[in-house]
Write a protein that binds this DNA or RNA. Structure first.
Lengths: 258, 258
DNA sequence: CGTACATTTGATCCACTTCAAACTCGGTGG
DNA sequence: CCACCGAGTTTGAAGTGGATCAAATGTACG
């Protein structure tokens, strides 16, 4: 693991790293910007040391001053209940914006923690705000990310309120698959960056239930699982069990592009 | 009821109605604007005929072109599952902004329906966007509303994922109470604009469960209920059961004011 | 190579759902 | 004015999906 972070570290910190040349730029904030504007945005972005697995990007209550875009790796966002339990509200993959829910607060209302070695672009919020004064497209892009997050949250409420265990897990896998696909990774073979425990926490299920549904899905030959490696063998039926049409998942992924 | 809407109709449509003189302006979009800017905002806002109970403000899939601020009455927002069930995602009280989740879509991703006779201010989104180019405070206010909605959604996920029936209902009542309080209504005596069914739908519970918890809370002498009239008799203990400290609920209500 | 932690599997339990029926109340028409 | 209607609400009894408890198995890392 240390080897891995050593390998990534220097790369992601190199002065060469630019939005302009970033493979994620078509999914990320620069999305609808022209080259000049991308350059302006680029100037305010800082590339941080990679986070190691388990490190916090920020904690609930930390003073808010930056939003982040994931470059590689993955994050979990979570809130704390009064009795100290955590509730995971989101998993973040590369190109996704993190920290928007703190925008009108002085403190982050949630915490964000690396699930694996993770690199992020740090965007000082005050400067982003200034810059977006002059760049309507950038502004639109930020609005867009936020309203997308709201829409996803509503879908999550629906999941938590109406779906049973199988539907939840299927939805989760289908959603991850769509997001990987969109990012150019294989949609049917991927590695889960989170533990069963974290999946259960996120989906409002006990670990044991998640595990049981995984095995049930394997006997149904929807998926093949080996530890954190997942292979989707019957995509159509998985989406069916999830209670979604494939196009819906894609749509929600695509909407951000306007 | 027709009498009521006749009574309200002309008032809310009168040319006199202005953000400047609106009693909600300190809670609503004009919040942080100076007088001149309020006037600019005011010019793009249209006051619509009041909606009657059960009428839609917009439906899921309607083409998106306006956001709305509730002036009086209340709304429920909901999404449809594939099998035609509705999932209520929000109830909206006066001064609250509705429709922000559609911002980067051509269509509203959710529906919004009046729970009672309801008046709204209609804000054409394109014009709001233009105006916010020139008014950083307005822009900030929109960002603020959206990030507040995101934060509330995360709290809702926590509720749906971790809280039991009593905690859910208590949270619901405590939250409503705080919102009424903030709007200058009595925090301890109010009328629920929604049915038990809608409460259950929103909280991820069966109607019967909601009803049972209401009666249990009455025998515990936390509240007194008569139909839709609710009187909170032991506010502290209600908030305790909800798993929140009073200040938290207030905080989340206050955050929008920056 | 062993210890701690994550995952799986099995057995039991329980909070909430579902089904069924009685009740309440605002409205409506005879 | 009152009987009646239907929708909304309450209450009771029975069923169940997933939680919890417990223990075995698997796996990563020092």
């Amino acid at each position: 693991m240390t080897a891995r972070s050593l390998k990534m570290g220097p790369m992601s910190l190199s002065k060469e790293t630019r939005c302009m040349t970033c493979s994620l730029s078509s999914l990320c904030l620069p999305l609808s910007l022209n080259l000049e504007d991308i350059d302006l945005l680029d100037k305010i972005i800082k590339r941080r040391q990679p986070l190691k697995k388990g490190e916090h990007l920020f904690r609930q209550g930390d003073s808010f001053d930056c939003v982040y875009a994931v470059r590689s790796g993955s994050l979990k966002n979570y809130i704390m209940t009064n009795d100290g339990e955590e509730q995971i509200t989101n998993f973040h993959l590369p190109s996704e914006l993190v920290g928007l829910d703190g925008i009108d607060c002085t403190q982050y209302p949630i915490a964000s923690k690396a699930l694996e070695t993770t690199t992020v672009c740090e965007i000082p919020y005050a400067r982003l705000q200034e810059l977006s004064s002059d760049l309507p497209d950038l502004r639109r892009q930020i609005f867009s990310s936020m309203s997308k997050e709201i829409r996803e949250d509503k879908q999550m409420m629906l999941l938590l309120s109406k779906k049973n265990a199988e539907e939840r897990v299927a939805t989760f896998l289908a959603n991850l698959s769509s997001r990987f696909k969109r990012r150019g990774y294989s949609p049917n073979t991927f590695r889960l960056p989170m533990s069963r425990n974290e999946i259960g926490n996120y989906l409002g299920l006990a670990v044991e239930t998640v595990s049981r549904v995984f095995t049930r899905f394997q006997t149904m030959e929807l998926i093949a699982v080996n530890g954190k490696e997942v292979h989707i063998t019957d995509r159509d039926r998985l989406f069916e069990v999830a209670g979604l049409l494939e196009c819906e998942a894609e749509d929600s992924a695509r909407l951000i592009t306007g």
